[in-house]
Simulated scan of single mutants.
Amino acid sequence: MTRSITNPAGLHNPTAFGYSHIVSAPGEQVFIAGQYGSDETGAVVSEDFAGQVEQTFANLRTALAAAGLGPSDVVRIGTYVVGHDQSRLEVLLEHLHATWGTELPAQTLIGVASLALPGMLFEMDAVAVRPAGHA
Rank of each mutant, 00 (worst) to 15 (best):
I110N: 06
V91N: 00
I110A: 14
F122N: 01
V81N: 04
E90C: 04
E123T: 08
R88S: 01
W100V: 03
V112W: 08
E94Q: 14
G111E: 10
S114K: 13
H97V: 09
S114Q: 15
L104Y: 04
H97E: 11
L117I: 08
L117A: 15
V127H: 01
V82K: 00
E103D: 15
G111A: 15
F122S: 05
D85H: 10
E103A: 14
A128T: 06
E94S: 11
V112N: 05
H97W: 11
P131E: 11
E94M: 06
L89H: 14
L89Y: 13
D85C: 11
P131D: 07
S87V: 07
A128Q: 04
A116Q: 12
R130Q: 02
T79D: 01
I110T: 15
G111N: 12
E94K: 12
H97I: 12
W100N: 02
P105R: 00
V81P: 01
E90M: 09
L92N: 02
L89T: 14
Q107V: 10
W100H: 07
L121D: 00
H95E: 13
V82L: 11
V82P: 00
L89N: 11
A116P: 07
H95W: 11
S114A: 13
L93R: 10
I110F: 07
V127L: 08
L121I: 03
Q107F: 05
T79H: 00
P118R: 04
L115D: 06
H84E: 15
H84G: 11
L104M: 11
A126P: 02
L104K: 00
I110H: 08
L109N: 10
V82Y: 01
L109P: 00
L121Q: 08
P131K: 08
H97T: 14
V91M: 03
G83W: 08
R88T: 08
P131L: 05
T102Q: 11
I110Q: 12
V81R: 00
V127E: 07
L121F: 02
H84A: 14
H95Y: 15
L109I: 14
Y80T: 09
V82I: 11
L121R: 02
E94N: 11
A106R: 03
P131W: 02
G111R: 10
V112F: 08
A98C: 05
V112I: 12
L96A: 09
T99Q: 03
S114E: 14
Q86N: 14
E94I: 03
P118K: 09
T99I: 04
M124L: 15
V81H: 05
E90P: 03
P118T: 09
G111P: 01
Y80S: 07
P118C: 05
E123Q: 13
W100Y: 13
T99C: 07
T102P: 04
H84L: 13
A128K: 00
R88E: 06
H95I: 05
T99G: 06
Q107L: 12
G101V: 14
D125H: 05
Q107H: 10
F122M: 10
D85R: 10
V127Y: 01
L92W: 02
G119W: 03
P105G: 06
L92F: 10
T99D: 01
S87H: 05
A98V: 05
Q107R: 12
L117D: 15
E123W: 06
L109F: 08
L92V: 15
P118A: 13
P105H: 07
G101F: 09
E123Y: 01
L89V: 11
P131H: 03
V129A: 03
L92Y: 04
H97K: 12
S87W: 05
L93V: 06
L115I: 05
A128W: 01
R130V: 09
F122K: 03
